[in-house]
Amino acid sequence: MTHASGSIPAASPWSIPGIALNVGANEIVVSGSNVVAGGTVTNAQDIATDAAYSGGWNTGNNGGTGFNGWQLNAEAGESGHFVNGNLWGMWSHEGHLGESFRPFPSALAVGQSFHVHMKNGWIWENGGSVGIALQNAASNTLWEFYFNGGDDDYSITGGTTDIGWTDVGIDIVFTVTSAGNYSVDITPVGGTKRTYTGTFTGDIAQFRAWSYSNGTNDGQNSNRDYFIGAMKITSLGSGGTQVYSDFVVVTREAPANAPEIVGYNLQTGGGAMNLSILSSQIGTTYAIWESPTLIPTQNWQKVQGSSKPGTGGAIDLTITNMILPLNFYRIGIE
Score class of each variant (00 low, 15 high):
H3V: 09
G6Q: 04
S7R: 08
G18K: 07
A20K: 15
V23L: 06
A25R: 07
N26H: 09
S33F: 05
N34R: 05
N34P: 06
N34D: 15
A37T: 12
G38M: 09
T42W: 09
I47C: 12
A48N: 06
T49F: 13
A51Q: 07
Y53I: 02
Y53A: 05
S54H: 11
S54K: 11
G55L: 13
N58H: 15
N62P: 06
G64L: 07
W70N: 08
W70E: 15
N73F: 14
A74S: 15
A76P: 09
F82G: 14
F82E: 09
L87N: 04
E99V: 10
F114R: 00
H117P: 00
K119F: 01
E125D: 10
E125P: 01
N126I: 03
N126P: 02
G128C: 03
V130S: 02
G131V: 02
I132V: 11
A137C: 01
A137N: 13
A138K: 11
T141N: 08
W143I: 01
E144P: 00
D151R: 09
G158P: 11
T160G: 14
T161P: 11
D162A: 13
G164S: 11
W165S: 09
T166R: 05
I170D: 00
I170P: 00
D171N: 13
D171C: 02
V176I: 14
V176T: 15
G180F: 05
N181I: 05
V184N: 00
D185S: 12
T187S: 10
G191C: 02
G191D: 03
Y196E: 06
Y196F: 15
T201H: 03
G202N: 12
A209M: 09
S211N: 04
S211C: 11
T216N: 09
R224D: 00
R224T: 00
K232S: 13
I233M: 04
G237V: 02
T241W: 09
S245M: 10
D246F: 12
F247L: 14
V248M: 10
V250D: 02
V250H: 05
R252K: 10
A254N: 08
V262F: 07
L266E: 10
T268S: 09
G270L: 00
G271S: 01
M273Q: 08
S280A: 10
I282E: 10
T284F: 05
E290K: 08
E290Q: 15
T293F: 07
L294K: 08
P296G: 04
N299C: 02
Q301K: 13
K302H: 02
S307F: 05
G312I: 03
D316A: 11
T320M: 09
M322L: 14
L324Q: 15
P325I: 02
L326Q: 12
N327C: 04
R330S: 10
